[in-house]
Amino acid sequence: MSSFLMKLPPHQHGKYETKYTFFILSAAMLPAILFSIFYYGYRMLFAYILTMGVCSFTEWVYESIKYKKDYLERFLEFKGSVTAALIVMTLPPILPYYVYVVAALIASIIAKQLFGGFGRNVYNPAITGRIAVLVGYSSLMSTFYLPTSNILENGLFNITTVPIDAISMATTLTAAKETVASGGTLPILMTDTWLPSFLGFIPGAAGEVSALALLIGGALILITRIGAWRIPFACLTTFLVLATVFWYFNQGYVLDPITQVLSGGIILGSFFMATDFVTSPLYSKGKIIFGIGCGALAIMIRIFSSYPEGIGFSILLMNSLVPLIDRYTKPRSFGG
């Protein structure tokens, strides 16, 4: 008799669960991940597996200690893997493997677990990990490659050594900075880079190169409505508007807005990193403010600082403002 399930209402639950949400997020990143493997070869695949292993393992150890029970099931919950994938995607493609391990450890132990674990961390773990290695291994971090062949031509295991099949080359953003610094001027519109940048055949961080692949994933996030459209929308709009303004008044010294948005990590950042639930504001108004902040800081760092790319820093900066934003954007209750 007492075998009936006693439960407080509501007696049903929607289909969305953390698991499901993280699964979709992972699926949304898949086009860009696949593109990077296709473009840079099987080394990338190893990098993903290695980083995911490290992240999942630390996560598992942490949860096992914290909750004092076997969390083997959680091993497969994609929580650590989203962070892991983002780390690999934002780093240059061909790195010694230990760099990934260091980034992954910093991301999951320092940025996430020391803050109290999933749901409590203030800073986006993937970006924290990336920035730590960016500072620690700065020379490795500024070496990018343009592959001269891909796995369709060579087979999965052919691009084994670097830089035989790839030429080392600066990214569009770095190249532009250097040109301007050495007294040169840039073409007003860099039309010839638009198509390769959109498709992804340019030197850059592994998962950031193909705007197309990222936009496909971004569309999936928006269609399944697991992520808030407000943050990417506000971020990209602000970024484009400011980029246009700066370009208009400094033609020849600042890249045109289309090139700006297609190169570097702005698309990846606004769709996949700024939207991280845990480290972004809770309320709609706050999300817009956060997006605007990320977009504005990103373009300003690109133009006014010595770093070629600013999306990571800008998101981290805005992360630290989240509690403040939340406090002042609380919704008003109906009739209250």
Binding site: V278, Y283, S333, F334
Partner: peptide, 23 residues
């Protein structure tokens, strides 16, 4: 259906979006 264990809030904001009382 079972009594699920509560997990940490992921701060996804869905509960806020659906609350008709704007809470």
């Amino acid at each position: 259906s079972k009594n699920h264990e509560e997990e940490a809030c992921a701060r996804c904001g869905r509960c806020i979006d659906v609350c008709v009382m704007g809470l």
